[in-house]
Write a protein that binds this DNA or RNA. Structure first.
Lengths: 247, 247
DNA sequence: CGACAATTTGACTCAAGTCAACTAGGGTGG
DNA sequence: CCACCCTAGTTGACTTGAGTCAAATTGTCG
């Protein structure tokens, strides 16, 4: 999923706001001078910690800000015609969410914490104002949105014609890549979401998710204990997924 | 799909470039002064007419511009892991496409004309430069991208759990709404794409598309003769789709 | 230590896919 | 102008992957 900036260095001194954020090496726009960085940080608001189940915004809420995950994990979803949720994405530290509301004045999605989390809020109008003065920030925001579009489209490919195995393999690979990006183990991690959430996201029912996990485990490709996943054969998983999905 | 601007008025005198474009009432950013409008038009390039099957760009091409459809119809698609195409969207007059390449330097998608078409090309870097000077243009571009994200997400809902009937009803409604926006009949129109394209886009095989068309016709909801569609009961179609899809 | 929620497993069903044959258009060349 | 060909579209018969329903098991939290 989109991050507020491409993985990169942060040579500038950290401002108080972002000082204690483990993500600043990958979360602050590059090619921004110290003074500019300072101005950007000034508008970023740190929220209080969220508990599992807490909402950041709900579908229909007035759109004012976009958000970045500092810690924890969240999901965004919208309601289907028959009233149940359709998860649009999972959001891990360093990733942005809430971009869906950018057009129009309300959030189409609801964002809820999957576990204890904290997020940074970026008031969109102020960011826009700043982007007019900082070309690299504007460019960065355009790319950020473009990345989101690309990710959504890649997900469309996944949901359109892929089998249950392929979908789940792709999700595991996506998570793996995202953990790697944070310098965490790409082969051993804890799923922040339930089987139900996975199924919902991938267009499968829980039973199918469970069965596929069992099957992949029987093939010796993964090892699962509850929410703990150990990927034994990353390449085999890639073979099943067929493609790397940037979700 | 995204239009370069929300449907609206265009009080300003048209510049030569856009003079003969039937879409200018819905295709030029509002809240832009004449002088600004002129500068925007200066960077827009009109392309030669495209014949059915002609490409605007191909997957892997260097990303330089985004595009707007002036006339005709196009589709964009990317390749799935096993090498066949997955259509990302159909693009009708007044709509933008090519936004997927905004992140990174290459187009992830291929764009091809479904029929004789013409498109306007907007060099992205120059547009970015202009957006720094014209706040309303920057705002407009952000909204445009946000709209694209919203549309993709809505499509995700559709592809994730909807039945063949629901998908096709949703597509017909989407097309209907888009024709209406252009002041064309929302109940009688010609499909610019083949059954195969429809199926590909919706994650169905041609046979299923054909069967659903036959079924909807038997129910007296639509009347189909080849590519000509007549929607007899728009409300019934809405009931089946459950939701309005902004594709 | 319960009580409830999440997960797993099994048996059965069904919507959509596959395979195959047939029909209808839409050009093209004679 | 028409015969022919080729592609797009339709229809039918059969198959199957994933959903549904149901029951057992595990995990979690008050």
């Amino acid at each position: 999923m989109s991050r507020i900036c491409p993985a990169g260095h942060s040579t500038s001194a950290q401002q108080p706001q972002c000082d204690d954020c483990a993500l600043n090496p990958i979360c602050l726009p590059m090619a921004v001078s110290d003074a500019e960085l300072h101005r950007l940080e000034d508008i970023i608001q740190r929220g209080r910690p969220l508990q599992r189940g807490d909402h950041v915004f709900r579908s229909g809420d007035h759109f004012e800000s976009i958000f970045a995950v500092r810690s924890g994990a969240l999901k965004t979803y919208r309601l289907t015609p028959d009233g149940d949720e359709q998860i649009m994405g999972f959001h891990l530290p360093g990733e942005m969410f809430g971009l869906g509301g950018l057009d129009g004045h309300v959030h189409p999605n609801t964002a809820v914490a999957l576990e204890t989390s904290s997020v940074c809020e970026v008031p969109f109008e102020r960011m826009e104002g700043l982007a007019l003065e900082i070309p690299s920030l504007q460019h960065h925001m355009f790319r950020l949105l473009g990345r989101e579009i690309g990710a959504d489209e890649q997900l469309l490919v996944l949901l359109s014609k892929r089998s249950a195995e392929e979908r789940i393999a792709a999700l595991l690979l996506s998570l793996s890549a995202r953990f790697r990006r944070r310098n965490l183990s790409p082969t051993r991690f804890r799923l922040p979401m339930s089987r139900g959430d996975i199924g919902n996201f991938l267009g499968l029912v829980v039973e199918t998710v469970s069965r596929v996990f069992t099957r992949l485990q029987a093939q010796g490709i993964i090892e699962v204990h509850g929410k703990d996943v150990h990927i034994l054969k990353l390449d085999a998983l890639g073979g099943i997924a067929g493609t790397q999905v940037e979700v």
